[in-house]
Amino acid sequence: MDMLSEGLSGALRLLLGFDPDFTAIVAVSVLVAFTSTSLAALTAVPVGVLIAQRRFPGRGGVIAVLNTLMSLPTVVVGLLVYSMLSRNGLFGSLGLLYTRTAMVIGQWILAFPIVAALTVATMEGLDTRVHSTAISLGASPMQAFLRLLSEARFGIVAAVVAGFGRVFAEVGVSMMLGGNIKTYTRSITTAIALETNRGEFALGLALGIVLLTVALLVNILLALLKRRTP
């Protein structure tokens, strides 16, 4: 049995076939990953910039913790959020378990340390003279800061893209918090897990190829965005 070629042709059939179930799977993956990455970008980038700009006691420790959290296992995040969202948990009354919102929350937590830590690294890698030159040219501190930020823009985009890659490919959080409910919380990765469990290895592989294709499309879009503002 040639699983790989079967997987490839399966992927093509899925991509060209427009099966509604399959479209829903891709839509869930993209929607959830896009929302969680956006949330992570909106929260983690400012935090990263602050950490890079300010000097405060325990700063090295905070950076070390952020870097460590980058290797947070998805299942641990899943368990943690699960225990809070379950009806027995702190936020149980919201009834959020097994919803897309729960998946977004879990993925947000996954992406946050990555985006924040990479933003810190980017900002710290910048030439500090940008800031002082801007000041000496008569810029206000705010303008000088914005100038610095604009220097870091590609690094920050890269940080966000890395966060997107992490959440788009993860399965632990989506499975535990989403529950792999058909057309509702079934993402590409949980569908792969299901098909693998069922022994439908070729279909699992096909979905994996689809996942990479969608990720490629997202990155092409981002590259186009970059080119439009050279």
Binding site: S150, R153, L225
Partner: peptide, 11 residues
């Protein structure tokens, strides 16, 4: 500067 801001803004 404008270009940088335009990019940030768009994003």
């Amino acid at each position: 500067f404008m270009k940088a801001m335009e990019f940030t803004e768009k994003t």
